[in-house]
């Protein structure tokens, strides 16, 4: 046992939360979890619900794996991780079906596909297996929120420009449509999500020069 106890929100722990928001964002920097970012970001509501679901799954499974890290034999660790994630995903899926049936239907298989989300497996392997539960918990929250934030930003632009709504409410007034404005059909198609993600990466790197690779 170390003599001094580390404070709960030491600067190191805070960094676990904030780094994935910018410098090591799972989507824009590590380029993981792109498939769900393309699939569920047509409207904000499903994107938001999926983001919350990923935060819960990731935080809990990070803690569980971190608790088990000394008892799991390295050879079967992937199977154990999968079992933990799958159990969490099923729980989340059932809750969504019970309380948010409409959204759950819109998300369809993408809730189940959280199991295969590379961000979760990646963080379990890279972080939870070698760290204590509390930092692992923070790391889970941080990375999942970093993922969720990008999802919601992309969904915001796609819903606003593609359907003229935000969170299902009409925000572009009827008078603008009468003037000749049209919703952009391309925004609803998946390729545009890729372009929006690309634009976010572009802006982020223009502001954060240390992310730019030199070659």
């Amino acid at each position: 046992m170390s003599a001094e106890k580390e404070p709960l929100f030491s600067s190191k722990n805070i960094k676990l939360l904030t780094e994935p928001m910018n410098d090591s964002n799972p989507i824009t920097v590590q380029v993981l979890g792109i498939c769900s970012a393309l699939a569920v970001t047509v409207k904000i509501k499903p994107a938001f619900v999926l983001a919350i679901a990923v935060v819960i799954v990731m935080a809990v499974s990070n803690v569980v794996i971190s608790l088990l890290r000394k008892t799991v034999p390295p050879r079967i660790r992937i199977i154990v991780q999968l079992v933990v994630i799958a159990a969490m995903v099923i729980l989340v899926d059932q809750v969504l079906k019970a309380f948010l049936f409409d959204v759950s239907k819109q998300l369809s298989v993408f809730v189940g596909l959280i199991i295969t989300n590379c961000i979760i497996m990646g963080r379990l392997e890279a972080f939870a297996l070698s760290n204590k539960p509390w930092p692992a918990f923070l790391d889970g929250i941080g990375n999942a929120s970093g993922y969720g934030v990008i999802l919601i930003i992309v969904a915001f632009f796609r819903e606003l420009l593609g359907s003229g709504t935000v969170w299902g409410f009409q925000v572009i007034p009827e008078s603008v449509y009468n003037f000749g404005y049209e919703n952009n059909g391309l925004m609803i198609l998946p390729p545009m999500a890729l372009i929006v993600v690309g634009a976010i990466i572009w802006i982020q790197r223009a502001k954060n020069k240390k992310l730019v690779e030199s070659n």
Partner: peptide, 10 residues
Amino acid sequence: AFLFFAYPSY
């Protein structure tokens, strides 16, 4: 291509 996919009715 942008116009073709974004505003097909035009």
